[in-house]
Nucleic acid binder design. Sequence first.
DNA 1: TATTGTTATACTCTATAACTATA
DNA 2: TATAGTTATAGAGTATAACAATA
Lengths: 185, 185
Amino acid sequence: MPAHKTAETATRPARALRGTRARAEVAADGIPAQDAGAAEVFAVDTVNASFLESLLGYNARRASLSLVGVFMKCMARFDLKIVEFSVLSLVGRNPGITSRQLCQQLDMLPPNMVGMIDALARRGFLERRPHPRDGRATGLYLTAAGRELVDTAEPQLKSSEEKAVAHLSETEQAQLMQLLQKLYR
Amino acid sequence: MPAHKTAETATRPARALRGTRARAEVAADGIPAQDAGAAEVFAVDTVNASFLESLLGYNARRASLSLVGVFMKCMARFDLKIVEFSVLSLVGRNPGITSRQLCQQLDMLPPNMVGMIDALARRGFLERRPHPRDGRATGLYLTAAGRELVDTAEPQLKSSEEKAVAHLSETEQAQLMQLLQKLYR
DNA sequence: TATTGTTATACTCTATAACTATA
DNA sequence: TATAGTTATAGAGTATAACAATA
């Protein structure tokens, strides 16, 4: 896991200020003179990621990845990937949902959904039935084993997230949820 | 892009309440009776994603992906992937940074960093120089072209994000930033 | 003609093992 | 012995094209 210690708000290079300097001249402003042909070499002590850290997108991705890690570990107990759990959870709340609808919801392409549904069906968690109105489509349904799995996994996932964000107050969690949704909806 | 219209807070299946029902009996509580051997089929009209949407992790990932999309489009003008830009930006602020440090910062594995640095060096944006203190390591430096690219790309990325989150107030943006960092740090 | 599910396939991203040069 | 950079390679994830069945 990355460190992300520094959070300076400099808008221009604070070049290896704490780093070791070798064969380099440093001007009064603290910025090494990058003269032509100089080929100075530096050692970076503490990485300055100030620009990336100033981006909401970077921070959103970091936060997302940290929770993804929590979810992965939690679902590993059921030998499920996050997206597989998502499929089962959606089928559980939407009996008869089509693979096309799952693709739209989970931002996946149809050819890549086929194998996953096959695998979950082979493991006995869901099954295909004809669509009542559209002969091209196939509706997906949880089996009894699939229902049991979802009913066990969902609360565990919820509680693993609660543990992971416990250092935020209830108010902060609600604020964050609302702001995230405002961002992408 | 997915829809995410519904946000019911039901804790148990609201099964295709708005969907078309076929060959199925619905009890007084509105939940279809899943009798053995019945094999009812349903059509799902509006997908119920209430459980997933109740997770901070799901919402963080959705928000992150939406900004990633903005960044990708912005960087495509420079024929740069997001991670390539991140490398250049970090090298720009950390002359002499090693590939190992980049890997830690960007959560990448060393073998996968090699090719990217090669490509950026071949394109003339950065160069390798010996490390002043460690003969095993290699320091990375922007070329003049690399510096120009970073100095052009960074403000454009910043402004593209600002446009993308303009529907949030300054206060909301600051709050979101602070909460995201509190989440993963 | 358009859409659903599907196959085949290519491309990208990510992960592991092992080697070299140096610490 | 451990670490930085590298190579080769395997595996997972993601993408496009095309086809049969149905709308």
